[in-house]
Design a protein around this nucleic acid. Structure first.
Lengths: 246, 246
DNA sequence: CTCGGCCACTAACATAGGTTAACTTCCAAG
DNA sequence: CTTGGAAGTTAACCTATGTTAGTGGCCGAG
């Protein structure tokens, strides 16, 4: 059975294949997905405060977790294909943030009662699902560190480095870049700065030969500079060793 | 059987008693703790990169999760009694941050093999443990929001409000304040600023009648101002309604 | 085609916060 | 009591970043 047999969860498995799963287990995981939807325009998929009875897995595209506060958008996490976006909703029930699509996305929905069943009968899968939410928390911690420590240039560099690495884990990173449908405003929302200042920073990184971000495409010009500027050490992603960012 | 019968996990249960547990389950949880240690001086209990085979629960005092990066300390989380500090170590195995004691602390250790056994046989407890790590992640997200959005005054106000609320959940908050053994340098490390600037901020909040932080004691002078300045909405703590901060 | 709106981009100015360098207060060790 | 170090405090100066106000380009709707 090839991996293509699991269209919804293939990248999830790629991204965190710490324990090898049997085909039976892979099938159970795939079976969590109940229905699939596509959103082509920016769309708020879930709202803060929503009581949820299903969780969402990102199959294709980009989604952000957003906290709105007096008119401002704050991106607290970004997701790449294969990520379980709100698995935490299973246990917390009520969401503490919005989930919004960026660009065109495809999303799978996993009803909580199916997840419940797996938790009760499949310890390996249960552990993998838990593990997945813990990875999220580890990324949150790194973002906290990055926000506490780095200035705007460093934050952007860190964000780019992290996304490149995470996309590489799921075979979606190019040799020297990746496509990223975020506007400068959204980059600013993720780095805790303003779009005006983000524009200055994007320009600076382009001119200093670190990275070029334009027309939805990220082109890494100098890996070493990027890593240094972003103080990026991929250990927190718990992956199988960095690939693109040697 | 009174709650005092569970000296190690009593506050853990207070803090997140979402599902009522039977005394049998409470006993199993209490039985996770293998040995207890006290540290009176500041002490690094666990180091980043450590491979762990036990997790730690905070029984008394304060501990911080810290990421050191070129000489600087970054506090990414603070813990109050009852918190499972590194439950995530159970699944991740390798720590992505240090765990350090602040002031005098008492800590319990729970070997991973005991946790493993509970996960396999006790779905309610398993879910509660998972829930506990998800709460951590929700707090991380709020910190990210706070760092992205608020200036130093607001960050400090938010930190104070959060800690007051969390201490209140475990009956350790006073009527108009709480004791907090953090130095201004450590407050700065948690708010992503410098100790010099933190000093300015502490002074300002004292003079504007918001909160007085001195000699290890926090005295809230005006709840409403504190909440506003820190943009604090306790929903993300998933508690049973705010008490001190109406 | 052309209009309206979003996005990228720029300039001029204001301010929060970083840096360096002091001095003071407190307290514990001797 | 004396000493030394850590914590708190302040001042002067400088830079990163926020704010306000605008420009021009692109693109989809009509």
């Amino acid at each position: 059975m090839t991996e293509e047999a699991f269209p919804y969860t293939r990248r999830f498995l790629q991204g965190r294949s710490r324990d090898a799963l049997s085909d039976r287990e892979k099938g159970l995981l795939e079976g969590l997905v109940d229905k699939v939807e596509r959103f082509t325009a920016p769309h708020t998929i879930l709202n803060r405060g929503d009581v949820v009875d299903q969780s969402t897995i990102l199959i294709e595209g980009t989604v952000a977790r957003v906290i709105h506060e007096d008119g401002k958008r704050h991106i607290v996490a970004l997701h790449v294909p294969g990520d379980f976006v709100d698995l935490h909703g299973f246990a917390l029930k009520r969401l503490d943030h919005d989930v919004v699509s960026i660009g065109s996305v495809q999303i799978g929905f996993a009803p909580h009662d199916r997840i419940q069943k797996i938790l009760e009968t499949e310890p390996t899968l249960a552990r993998m699902l838990w593990y997945s939410t813990l990875l999220d928390a580890a990324m949150h911690r790194e973002w906290i560190m990055k926000l506490e420590r780095l200035s705007a240039d460093g934050r952007l560099a860190h964000l780019v480095a992290e996304l490149w690495q995470r996309l590489d884990f799921v075979d979606l990173a190019g040799e020297n870049g990746f496509s990223l449908p975020l506007t400068q405003q959204e980059l600013a929302d993720a780095c805790g700065t303003t779009s005006i200042h983000m524009n200055r920073v994007v320009k600076k990184l382009r001119e200093t030969g670190v990275v070029d971000i334009s027309r939805g495409q990220v082109t890494v010009l100098d890996k070493t500079l990027l890593k240094e500027l972003g103080a990026f050490d991929p250990a927190y992603l718990y992956g199988r060793g960095p690939l693109k960012l040697t």
